[in-house]
Write a protein that binds this DNA or RNA. Structure first.
Length: 825
RNA sequence: GGGGAAGUGGCGGAAUGGCAGACGCAGCCGCCUCAAAAGCGGCCGAGGCAACUCAUGUGGGUUCGACUCCCACCUUCCCUACCA
């Protein structure tokens, strides 16, 4: 009696053996073409669910296919191990963050192995290990030397719950990206990385990233937010003080009827000294009312609130005196923190002017019709200028150039480029991160540590109260000596944003245990770039922008050669729902790796995740759906089982004799599946859902063959070839079948079987015959049939004749072996 | 407000200019069985006895031919937003 397939024992057996034999270890080999496939490094949060599994099933299928196609594949894995959850666990439950993190890593690593993934574990890194973060510190010092890391006081985002500052990229809708608290603005002295120096290149080089999704590139473009315009200086009437405005529409300057400053603008202090006590008090009250408001409340207020300061500013060209306002909608840290108000030509200015009864009808760029008519709505388009002194008559475009030129000659303005992108705030007032390698000396001030002093280790024995920066409270850490003068000094107690670590980890994988440098050039020269990067779209402006920035710095420094972009091709996988709902611990509907591996098996899980949708789409995990793949795995076993003793002798690198139609169809189904695997992997479409469907058809054919032609060489051939064909998707059953067929070496060391044109060819085609584009007949024919023969056959067909007879044939369209269209009238 | 993606059977989806609905799930029928499960085989968009007709969100267009390309609209999802 046949034994049934015991997936638990088989999966266990092969995972252990692969591990023992180091089957997936990658080594540099200049004679072979390399392929670097990488999935975004995970945060060790505790447990893997099928959402993670989808990502790894996809990456692993790609890695295994490319390996079997002969590429030297590197497929590493590691842990983004610093970060707040570990520290919050420490506060809540008194567990050492290092212990908590190590336990999670151990568990998740076990689960990743349980998936039967082909990672090279000799390259594993955890970013919280000193051997990793010392290079973080090393890189920080290099950035510091280049002037790309600097400390300055600035208004920053402060999360009151997490008690730390956040980068702009980590504030979502005015809320903390981790805990959802409303973010406050605080003036603090903080460390920044000068990503704005690279804004132009980060923007321009997006054009070259052909292998990136368009939407991701668009998001980066919008995030960088480069706009070209002009900056000009306004003198405040009755004061020495002045301020600058930025505008993209300098052509409408003659239409300015007011100007607006941000309440925090430095010029507001000067204004308070020249206006009445009453006005000054009102300014203070208005500023205070905003200060107590969160960023979200302030920016999502659709009402434009503002007050007149009592002061006037002088339009540098028209010399008109216009009132100076302060308002909530002008942001201190965008542009110059001051704007010109041109109600006739700007939606927002129009709305503000209407609300506060400011003059509106100052049309500079008429839309057409009578410019004297009262304005219903602002005209924001371009046109020919009026009422603009000697610029009148010019088109908007030309006027912008001419006006900037005039202002420049007067020393009051210039062309300017404004960015939305801010420098990257990288310091955090938390413990579980890389200490910043800087000390503060009473005599020398801010002093970087020397390379020999690295790593600055995170001290153990810290007391977590949730109050204040933990490192700052530890005197033994803080008190040190100055590397320059030897005098007393205090250490920087901030740690780095964890995005610092993840901006270069893909390089550390290539030299994971190197002790002389973060990575050696000869390693990166061989392996970089990442050929295929796979991860969620939520990192579009965080990790993916920071990594590009770092890599450009590395390229400029000569630490890597070739391209200055790290990720050749990028793929965003979709998320996984359960019965149409988002999985979450609170809902209690999380499908964990452990439970599904135990009940369904890992091969079935991997197949299902690839099969249910194209990988970029959202997939829905259902119990019925997974049971379909469990059935499939069992059918694969049953289709091969009768041939364990016999199939191993039939060669799989040459076609068997194909005598009957069934034999041809069976072998063809195999080669169609082989071709699909290779096509999806190498065209980088990764729609393995269609590939798995081809395997369904193959196994259907094999099931019939096992019953109807158990002695055919074609049947034995297909059975013997199946484990090789399916190895990238169901690695365990593939390996077990391969062994049962009598092989002593791993199926995963086999070359993939090349699809054979003779096997793919068909003996008979169905010729579709259309008359005027409507299908009138389907005629069986021989492949390669000529147009003349096809037409002759078609016209013999009753249905075709009925539609053609008595009409003139105007045209014939013939698609070889597919279709004939007869056009009549 | 701006940007992006997508709309195909009961469901997930396939077809990217040439036979719409591959493959799976669910459902129905049969075989096997004392019976059930499993397994195996068959049916499975709508209308029609049928030959056939209709059908890929809506309306137009391009084409011999459109799920596929173009334009407009509707709907859904995602991202982003007082950006000067």
């Amino acid at each position: 009696m046949a034994e049934s397939y015991d997936f638990r024992a088989v999966e266990r057996k092969w995972q252990d053996r692969w591990e023992r034999e180091g089957l997936y270890r990658a080594r540099e080999d200049a004679s072979r073409e390399k392929y670097y496939v990488l999935e975004m490094l995970p945060y060790p949060s505790g447990d893997l669910h099928v959402g993670h599994a989808k990502n790894y099933a996809l990456g692993d299928a790609i890695a295994r296919t490319m390996r079997m196609l002969g590429y030297n594949v590197v497929h590493p894995m590691g842990w983004d191990a610093f970060g707040l959850p570990a520290e919050n666990a420490a506060i809540a439950r008194g567990i050492d963050p290092a212990t908590w993190t190590a336990e999670n890593i151990r568990n998740m690593q076990r689960q990743v192995r349980l998936m039967g993934t082909s990672y090279d574990w000799s390259r594993e890194v955890a970013t919280c290990e000193p051997e990793y973060y010392r290079w973080n510190q090393w890189l920080f010092l290099r950035l510091y030397e280049k002037g790309l890391a600097y400390k300055r006081e600035a208004p920053v985002n402060w999360c009151p719950r997490d008690r730390t500052v956040l980068a702009n990229e980590q504030v979502i809708d005015g809320r903390c990206w981790r805990c959802d608290s409303l973010v406050e603005r605080r003036n603090l002295s903080q460390w920044f990385l000068k990503i704005t120096d690279y804004a132009d290149r980060l923007l321009a080089d997006l054009e070259r990233l052909d292998g990136w999704p368009e939407r991701t590139k668009t998001m980066q473009r919008n995030w960088i937010g480069r706009s070209e315009g002009a900056q000009l200086r306004w003198q405040i009437e009755g004061s020495d003080a002045s301020f600058e405005t930025f505008t993209t529409r300098i052509d409408t300057l003659y239409g300015a009827t007011f100007v607006v400053l941000a309440p925090e603008h430095p010029a507001v202090d000067a204004i308070k000294t020249i206006v009445s006590k009453k006005n000054a008090a009102a300014i203070d009250a208005f500023a205070l009312s905003l200060k107590s408001k969160s960023e979200l409340e302030r920016t999502s207020l659709m009402e434009k609130e503002g007050i007149f300061t009592g002061a006037y500013a002088i339009n540098p060209l028209s010399h008109e005196h216009v009132p100076v306002w302060i308002a909530n909608y002008v942001l201190a840290d965008y542009g110059t923190g001051a704007v010109q108000g041109v109600p006739a030509h700007d939606e927002r200015d129009f709305e503000f002017a209407k609300k506060h009864a400011l003059p509106i009808a100052k049309v500079i760029v008429p839309k057409g019709g009578d410019p004297a008519e009262p304005l219903e709505a602002p005209y924001t388009g371009e046109g020919r200028l009026i009422a603009s002194a000697d610029f009148s008559g010019m088109a908007s475009e030309r006027a912008r150039g001419a006006i900037v030129e005039r202002l420049h000659a007067m020393g009051l303005g210039r062309k300017a480029v404004n960015l939305r992108l801010r420098d990257w705030l990288v310091s955090r007032q938390r413990y579980w991160g890389t200490p910043i390698p800087i000390v503060y000396c009473e005599r020398c001030g801010e002093v970087p540590l020397t390379d020999e002093a690295l790593p600055v280790l995170l001290p153990p024995g810290v007391h977590f109260t949730g109050e204040g920066s933990p490192l700052a409270q530890l005197a033994s850490f803080v008190e040190t000596s100055c590397p320059r003068c030897g005098g007393a000094a205090r250490r920087e107690t901030d740690t780095m944003d964890t995005f610092f670590e993840s901006s270069w980890y893909y390089l550390r994988y290539l030299d994971a245990h190197g002790e002389s440098a973060p990575w050696r050039r000869e390693r990166s020269d061989y392996w970089m770039n990442v050929d295929q990067y796979i991860g969620g779209a939520e990192h579009a402006v965080l990790h993916l922008l920071y990594s590009r920035f770092f890599y450009k710095v590395f390229a400029d420094s000569g630490w890597v050669s070739g391209s200055d972009e790290p990720f050749e091709r990028l793929f965003h996988q979709g998320m996984v729902l359960y019965n149409g709902e988002k999985m979450s611990k609170s809902r209690g509907n999380v499908i964990g790796i452990d439970e599904t591996a135990a009940t369904n098996g890992v091969d079935a899980m991997r197949l299902f995740l690839l099969y249910v949708t194209p990988p970029e789409d959202t997939s829905d995990w259902t119990d019925e759906g997974i049971s379909g793949r469990v059935r499939f795995v069992n059918r694969v076993w049953r289709a091969c089982e009768p041939f364990f003793e016999r199939a191993g002798a039939v060669p799989i690198r040459e076609l068997p004799p194909l005598e009957t139609a069934d034999e041809k169809a069976l072998v063809r189904a195999l080669h169609v599946a082989l071709k699909s695997t290779i096509d999806e992997a190498t065209t980088r479409r990764f729609h393995f859902n269609t590939t798995v469907a081809k395997f369904d058809e193959l196994v259907n054919a094999m099931t019939a063959a096992a019953a109807n032609m158990p002695h055919s060489l074609a049947t034995l051939y297909a059975a013997h070839a199946l484990p090789v064909a399916i190895a990238p998707f169901a690695p365990h059953i593939a390996e077990e079948l391969w062994e049962r067929f009598g092989h002593a070496t791993s199926v995963h060391l086999e070359r993939y079987i090349a699809p054979d044109e003779r096997a793919l060819a068909v003996d008979e085609i169905t010729l579709v015959v259309q008359v005027n584009g409507k299908i009138r007949a389907r005629i069986p024919a021989l492949p390669g049939i000529s147009e003349e023969d096809a037409a002759a056959m078609a016209l013999q067909h009753d249905h075709v004749r009925a539609h053609v007879e008595g009409k003139a044939i105007r045209k014939r369209i013939y698609v070889q072996d597919k279709l004939l269209n007869v056009v009549v009238s």
